[in-house]
Computed example of a mutant assay.
Amino acid sequence: MSTEPPPSLTERRKAATQLDIAHAAAELFATRGPDATTAEDIARQAGVALRTFYRYFRSKQDAVGPLLTVGGDRWRGLLEGMEPGTPLGVALRTAAEQALAVPDAQAAQALLRTRGLLRAAADDPALRAVWYRVNQESEERLVPVIARLAAPGDEGRDPLEARLRVRLVAAAATDTIRIALETWAGTDAGAEGPGSPADLAVRCLERLGGGLDGA
């Protein structure tokens, strides 16, 4: 389990403001496109001053970062709650299915917002760079989580081999979720059911098969 202290009230307020700005940016990018959207537009939509926008973000594309990290944070949190020794394939599939589930309209809307962003990123290199950066950071944060889950199975394994296994699983799992979301964004499939992000992610993870469990 995570041993990090809970965020302070100031940190929670900062995160809430950043997420409000991210939602505003995502909505404008999806409806107008990045080229027709300015930082001033995003700040106005979010109800904050332009100086507040630039206190948190360097560019209009950077503003969507907090929104894109939400899913990865949820997935990682679910994995952190699993018992060490849980087969990695099972743990990753279960967590992916739960993290990408849409139990209510708000969750479905969040996924659809991500779809709009990924579609907009196809023609905007700066926005695409933010997406890739978010995935790289997610992979790095996943490494210690995978290491904890894999620890019992790595007893007696060469230390270098164990580290390689953990890094490879973290990279493969992160890219699997990315590919599932990107593939879904290029279709008109719904947020749940066949062809949804959860469905595609689980199918991709199943295709990786025993490699995730170190077979």
Rank of each mutant, 00 (worst) to 15 (best):
E161W: 03
E137Y: 06
G85P: 14
A201R: 00
D73Y: 03
E80A: 13
E192D: 06
R13Q: 14
T10R: 14
M1Q: 05
R32L: 11
A105P: 04
P125E: 02
I179M: 06
D35P: 04
A24T: 10
P84W: 03
P103D: 04
A49F: 11
G65M: 11
V145M: 15
T114K: 07
L111P: 08
E97N: 15
L28S: 11
G71P: 01
Q45A: 15
R119D: 12
I42S: 09
A121C: 12
V202N: 02
A26I: 00
T94E: 15
E206P: 08
A105N: 14
L149W: 13
G186T: 00
R93I: 04
A96Y: 13
I21P: 13
A99I: 00
G77L: 02
D175M: 04
D158I: 00
L79W: 06
D41Y: 09
L142Y: 02
R55F: 14
A107C: 12
A173P: 02
R167V: 07
A16H: 09
V145T: 09
R163Y: 07
A180Q: 03
T38W: 05
D188L: 03
R133L: 08
R133Q: 08
E161D: 10
A170Y: 00
V130Y: 13
Y54K: 09
I42H: 10
V102W: 15
L160S: 03
V143H: 13
R178P: 00
N135Y: 06
P34K: 01
